[in-house]
Computed example of a mutant assay.
Amino acid sequence: MNVYAVTYVYAPGSASARDRVRPAHRDHLQALCAEGAVLVSGPLPATDQEPDGALIVVRAPSATAATELLDTDPFRREGLVAAVGVRAWVPVIGGFAA
């Protein structure tokens, strides 16, 4: 199984909706974590150069499967994610190293 870094860029003006949906979003990711698919996740706070978003590191057989794994995330279902990026990640040191 490969490891992928999935990034979200949140939709502009979605902060209050994300606050409302966050418990379901976290429950969903926690269930995927319990299954071993999500390794770690958390917010990427906005900076002067980048909007706010999230990083979710997952195990999946392909980049397509990594994206599909998160298709049912409540944040995505509710249209709160403006963009999703997926990149293979090859950890060599630390807890996720193969």
Rank of each mutant, 00 (worst) to 15 (best):
R18K: 05
D19R: 00
R20G: 05
R22G: 01
P23K: 04
A24K: 12
A24P: 13
H25I: 01
R26L: 13
R26T: 09
R26G: 07
H28G: 04
L29A: 02
L29T: 01
L29F: 03
A31D: 15
A31G: 11
C33D: 15
A34N: 12
E35M: 15
E35Q: 15
G36I: 00
G36E: 11
A37N: 15
V38W: 00
V38D: 00
V38A: 13
V38C: 06
L39V: 13
L39R: 08
L39E: 12
L39Q: 07
V40Y: 06
S41I: 03
G42A: 08
P43A: 00
L44T: 01
L44W: 00
P45H: 06
P45I: 04
P45Y: 05
A46K: 10
A46L: 06
D48Y: 06
D48M: 10
D48F: 07
Q49G: 13
E50Y: 09
E50K: 11
P51L: 00
D52Q: 06
D52N: 11
D52H: 11
A54W: 00
A54V: 01
A54S: 03
L55C: 12
L55Q: 09
V58M: 13
R59E: 10
A60P: 14
A60C: 15
A60V: 15
P61T: 02
P61A: 07
P61R: 10
A63I: 07
A66P: 05
A66K: 01
T67Y: 07
T67K: 10
E68T: 05
E68K: 11
L69A: 09
L70P: 02
T72S: 15
T72V: 08
D73P: 01
P74C: 03
P74I: 04
F75I: 03
R76E: 03
R77L: 11
R77K: 11
R77H: 07
E78I: 03
G79L: 05
V81E: 00
A82H: 07
A82E: 09
A83M: 09
A83I: 06
A83W: 09
V84R: 08
V86M: 05
V86S: 02
R87A: 14
A88Q: 15
A88P: 13
A88G: 14
W89F: 04
V90W: 12
V90T: 14
P91G: 02
P91T: 04
P91R: 05
P91N: 12
V92G: 11
V92Q: 10
I93W: 14
I93E: 14
G94K: 10
G94Q: 08
G94N: 09
G95H: 11
G95S: 12
G95E: 10
A97H: 01
A97L: 10
A98I: 05
A98F: 08
A98Q: 06
